[in-house]
């Protein structure tokens, strides 16, 4: 069976389809090019960090630092923006990689629990972002080509960011599906003892997932700065939880050992979509929901999808 639609991940695709259908039927402008492209532009950030998180969680780990690392990378990219995209993009990703290397060193090297190690990086990245930016948003250089990434669209419809995100998704998917590294990632999460006995390079795989997650967070930060015209040191709070939620909704167990990259993408889009639909509902004026209440509704939605998953018969979820 193709990996995209494995039975356990079906619920997230069904939910996604149902919500899209609901939106198309209920709101006039939902299917408009404008909504689609702004939706994809905004959510490309969440797609990349969720995919990074997905690989980490497959090993049974967690990366709490992605939100503040993205904020840090947005500051770094904004500061480098006068040099153009060619410098600012790699610069932002490098900031993310650095944070990922820190995580990898603590987890694979010093054997610290991922929760603690990435919590430390989360705080460190926040501090670094604030001190680099002097606690202010850092405007980008509009004269350079830096904002083209976040603001230009292919055929006036697809933002460049979602296309870049797609490349990341495909890369992660190929790694998981086709490489021995990907097998090792799943084997560590499934049974670390057995993976070790099999002579698999478990450390290398751990280093890889944290580097990758860091790079993804860095890329999301570049998207942020490029798409919204500023490096934002205070952005990114709670993104790690959104990413974890996307991974879980996509059917990946927090204990690791299984999971799906495409379903994680669907999970990330699903969350963005709930937000999007609530905005439309607000726009109709039937009732008005504050952002706080939208968050509550998203939480409820997460619960429903997870219950749905359990119902759709995934024995592993019960254990």
């Amino acid at each position: 069976m193709p990996g995209v639609l494995r039975q356990g991940h079906l619920s997230v695709w069904v939910a996604l389809a149902v919500l899209i259908l609901f939106g198309v039927l209920r709101y006039d402008n939902f299917a408009s090019a404008y909504n689609l492209s702004s939706f994809l532009g905004y959510n490309s950030m969440f797609v990349v960090i969720s995919v990074g998180m997905c690989l980490v969680i497959m090993t049974g780990g967690i990366d709490l630092s992605v939100g503040t690392v993205a904020a840090l990378a947005s500051v770094v990219a904004a500061m480098l923006s006068p040099q153009g995209l060619i410098v600012a993009l790699p610069g932002g990703v490098a900031a993310g990689l650095l944070a990922g290397a820190l995580n990898a060193g603590m987890i694979a090297g010093l054997r610290l629990p991922p929760f603690m190690a990435t919590l430390a990086t989360m705080l460190a990245a926040k501090g670094a972002a604030l001190s680099l930016s002097d606690n202010r948003t850092v405007p980008v250089d509009w004269a350079s080509d830096f904002t083209a990434l976040g603001m230009n669209k292919v055929a006036n419809l697809l933002p460049w960011t979602i296309l870049v995100a797609l490349v990341v998704v495909v890369f992660a998917w190929v790694v998981v599906q086709r490489t021995s590294l990907g097998r090792t990632v799943l084997a560590i999460g499934g049974n670390a003892e057995a993976a070790h006995l099999m002579g698999l390079k478990t450390r290398r795989a751990e280093v890889f997932v944290y580097l990758f997650s860091g790079a993804c967070a860095g890329l999301a930060g570049v998207f942020l700065a490029s798409g919204y015209g500023a490096g934002q040191p205070l952005e990114g709070a709670g993104w790690e939880l959104a990413a974890i939620a996307a991974v879980v909704v996509g059917g990946t167990l927090l204990t690791g050992g299984m999971g799906s990259v495409p379903a994680t993408v669907a999970g990330a889009l699903l969350f963005g979509l709930v937000f999007n639909l609530l905005n439309f509902e607000n726009g109709r004026g039937t009732f008005s929901l504050s952002a706080d209440w939208q968050s509550v509704i998203r939480g409820l939605f997460l619960l429903i999808v997870i219950l749905l998953q359990a119902r759709l018969g995934r024995p592993a979820l019960k254990s």
Binding site: V174, L186, E193
Partner: peptide, 27 residues
């Protein structure tokens, strides 16, 4: 110490063989 429960029969069977099955890391 043996099985990786969620991986398939195929993936479990070739775990120790992976280094020889892959070229440039691609299986």
């Amino acid at each position: 110490e043996g099985i990786i429960p969620d991986l398939s029969v195929r993936e479990n069977l070739t775990l120790a063989l992976l280094p020889r099955l892959s070229r440039m890391g691609v299986v």
